[in-house]
């Protein structure tokens, strides 16, 4: 299977089952239409006949020969022999956990999937006792995994920061005895950040996700306090302080775009202007009936915006200006292994979420869905059958995924979105799929453009001094 497409002046071809990405000139792009899984050494007569009105016969033969070489090398129309690995998918050790340390929030964001902080379960904070049980649970269920990951989430985690600190301290005190290495992340709306919290986060958290939707008017339209006021002016200086003291440790400024802010390139650029470089803006996940939701009719506009953002990123990097957009990150040389791509995010199998009451769910977006409650830390229950069900939810068991060109990049998409929109974790959510495919097309095109940029620099400059890293 291949996926060929044109974007920003590039003719691109992804060979799905090898992962090879080819940039083609016009003739190769046209000849490819006459190739399939059963290429023969001799060029098809139909191709020579039909394309000879536009190209010379010898050039057509030469081009076909080049494509046939790729076919023989297993880099074009390569075979799908991954299903055997999918069949082996069984329960894996739990290696990561979302701890909902707070089911309370000091914001009332209109689009919050956590029902404005409490996941519909009433406002409460996790006790240290429950948090310690969560740490014990992941250690006990992680098998031989060395790296364990814990994300402090909510609600607003800073509303229960003493328990965050004590939980980290507890995990650090026992990790070596169990041959584990904890990597912590925290996601915050920033309102309660102060110098002490910034120092602790920068010392202990491998990654920090800072919520901001972009421009002041965009952010303050939906990210509001209980009395309806925006939070932009409070949080931005705190984020700038945190990031300035963070050194080279990971962070993301992470926003949500809605149908009201489909011009989100301006929000990404605004984040860059504020001094941030690691940026992420995701489409809102919500009931399609709500006025801010992204609907099927919005897709053409959003697609154009992703293209605009991709071109902007390329232009800026050519000028030596850098920012990273999370959903355009793609490693074509050494991305995740095929097994990881089959497993996907690991929701319900390698990854679980726990609530202040000690309830266990497949992930942070399933919290509150009673039929997906997997167990409880306090009574020691854990539904292994549900774990197996999620373990078997991979690209070969999901409707529409097996024959999709993007399957090894989206890994079957989001189980929670599938359930919320389609009522079944195995049924792909169409809008989410289309958005993911567009982001992938842009990400691959960016790689082609930056490779071109490097080639041009090599050919136009004899000195290393003028080299701008197109990374």
């Amino acid at each position: 299977m291949i996926h060929k497409y044109q974007l920003n002046g590039y003719n691109l071809c992804l060979d799905v089952h090898s992962g090879a990405v080819h940039v083609l000139d016009d003739i190769a792009y046209d000849v490819l239409d006459y190739c399939d899984e059963n290429m023969k050494e001799q060029p098809p007569e139909k191709m020579l006949s039909e394309l000879s009105v536009r190209y010379g016969i010898e050039e057509l033969k030469e081009t076909y020969e080049a494509l046939y070489e790729l076919y023989q090398a297993g880099q074009l129309f390569s075979k799908d022999d991954y299903e055997q690995f999918a069949d082996l998918m069984t329960r894996a050790p739990i290696k990561s956990m979302c701890i909902n340390i707070s089911h309370d929030c000091n914001l009332r964001c209109e689009y919050c999937f956590a029902a404005k902080g409490d996941f519909g379960q009433g406002r409460c904070l996790m006790s240290l006792d429950t948090a310690k049980k969560a740490i014990d649970f992941i250690i006990a269920n992680s098998g031989t995994r060395h790296n364990l990951e814990v994300d402090f989430f909510g609600g607003e985690p800073l509303m229960n920061f003493d328990v965050v600190k004590q939980t980290v301290e507890y995990a650090r005190s026992i990790e070596k005895a169990h041959n584990k290495n904890f990597r912590f992340t925290i996601t915050t709306n920033g309102l309660l950040l102060d110098d002490d919290k910034i120092d602790f986060i920068n010392r202990e958290m491998n990654n920090v996700v800072l919520s901001l939707d972009g421009r002041r008017e965009v952010n303050d339209k939906l990210r509001v306090t209980p009395n309806g006021k925006g939070c932009y002016d409070i949080i931005v200086p705190k984020y700038q302080k945190l990031v300035s003291k963070r050194g080279d440790k990971d962070y993301y400024i992470r926003g949500t775009f809605t149908t009201f802010s489909k011009d989100f390139t301006a929000d990404v650029l605004h984040m860059k202007e504020l001094g941030f470089e690691q940026l992420s803006i995701e489409p809102v996940v919500s009931d399609p009936k709500l006025d801010y939701s992204i609907k099927e009719d919005d897709l053409p506009t959003v697609f154009n915006e992703y293209e605009r953002l991709a071109k902007t990123l390329i232009d800026m990097r050519k000028r030596g200006e850098y920012f990273n957009f999370f959903h355009f990150m793609i490693d074509l040389d050494q991305g995740p292994c095929a097994i990881k791509r089959l497993r996907g995010c690991g929701c319900g199998n390698e990854y679980v979420a726990v609530t202040p009451q000690g309830d266990i769910y497949p992930c942070h977006q399933f919290v509150g869905e009673e039929k997906f409650k997997m167990g409880n830390l306090n009574d020691g229950t854990f539904d292994q059958d549900m774990k197996l069900r999620f373990a078997r939810a991979n690209v070969y068991s999901k409707t529409n995924c097996k024959d999709c060109w993007a399957k090894f990049y989206c890994s079957g998409g989001c189980n929670a979105n599938n359930y919320q929109y389609e009522g079944d974790i195995l049924k792909s959510h169409r809008v989410g799929c289309e958005l993911e495919k567009k982001r992938l097309e842009c990400a691959i095109m960016i790689k082609a453009a930056l490779a071109d940029c490097q080639d041009e620099q090599k050919s136009t400059c004899d000195s290393d001094d003028c080299f701008v890293e197109c990374r």
């Binding site: 083609l24 190769a28 030469e62 790729l70 880099q75 022999d81 040389d333 095929a338 490779a451």
Partner: peptide, 16 residues
């Protein structure tokens, strides 16, 4: 007519 951007190793990674 063709520039390949990467050294594809997806199949190798399935085994390893």
């Amino acid at each position: 007519h063709i520039k390949t951007l990467n050294k594809a190793n997806l199949k190798e990674s399935a085994a390893k």
